[in-house]
């Protein structure tokens, strides 16, 4: 049984049909790349799946139960996190503060009731977390803005997966990065998967898809048109599916 599924999602903006019966599924512990040409509906589908938008019709199933997300907060509460394309971190705060942003651990007792934070505990947990995901930082005490782009993105990824018990969506997480930094983030993604979390990667970068994805789902004109695994993930097939030359689902 897939961890997260979407069936026949439609989404209309006025008279524009962004999604026309799109489906999607991802299992625990796999990396699924969601690809498609510009305007294929990737972003809209992801927004529906993380609660940023509400589908016009269709159903979303998490862990076998039908769910609806009225906001990203609801989706987050159910274990679904998102890493945004533009770095959604606070550059002036240190990595631990960013990791716990909006979810700070308070001190015990009266001091906690007064709003005081347990910085030592957060720092300790952050260090453990970064180690787990292979995020290497020279220092935990510098503002994240002084780190390299790859490290910053790694922290953003680490933050999402730290809180995601089920699914992490990553929208072009390596778009702004250089080659070495990109490798690093991809390593982090693999580690996340190895921890049993479902990863959905939205990207335009085909070599990246081939490098890291276990499966590929292809959207075209607001619908899923192909699902490819290992051997089928040749560049020819990927491009074919995106452009309409290859269509598995029309008949289904």
């Amino acid at each position: 049984m897939p961890l997260l599924e979407a069936h026949n999602i439609t989404k209309n903006y006025g008279s524009v049909e962004a999604l026309r019966g799109a489906s999607f599924s991802v299992d625990a512990g796999e990396v699924v790349a969601l690809i498609g040409d510009n305007g294929a509906g990737k972003s809209t589908l992801v927004k529906c799946l993380v609660g940023a938008e509400q589908p016009t019709s269709g159903e979303i199933v998490l862990d076998g139960k039908r769910v609806s997300f009225d906001s990203p907060t609801t989706a987050r509460r159910m274990g679904i996190e998102t890493v945004f394309q533009d770095l959604a971190v606070a550059p002036d705060l240190d990595p631990a503060a960013n990791l716990f942003l909006g979810r700070e651990i308070k001190r015990k007792g009266l001091l906690g009731a007064l709003g005081m934070l347990d910085k030592a505990e957060m720092r300790k947990q952050a260090a453990e977390r970064f180690t787990t995901f292979g995020v290497t930082l020279q220092s935990l005490d510098v503002p994240i803005g002084s780190l390299s782009g790859g490290q910053r993105q790694s922290v953003a990824v680490a933050r999402a997966v730290a809180w995601a018990s089920k699914v992490v969506f990553m929208d072009e997480p390596t778009a702004a990065l250089g080659v070495v930094q990109r490798e690093r983030v991809l390593e982090v993604i693999k580690r996340v998967r190895d921890n049993g979390i479902a990863v959905v990667l939205i990207t335009h970068n085909m070599p990246e898809v081939q490098a890291v994805a276990d499966r590929v789902e292809v959207l075209r004109l607001g619908k899923r048109v192909a699902r490819l695994t290992d051997a089928d993930m040749s560049l020819e097939n990927l491009v074919g599916a995106m452009t309409g030359a290859l269509n598995q689902e029309e008949a289904a």
Partner: peptide
């Protein structure tokens, strides 16, 4: 779901 192998300098 996670196990830790702490190497980061805390």
């Amino acid at each position: 779901t996670l196990d830790y192998e702490s190497t980061v300098n805390t």
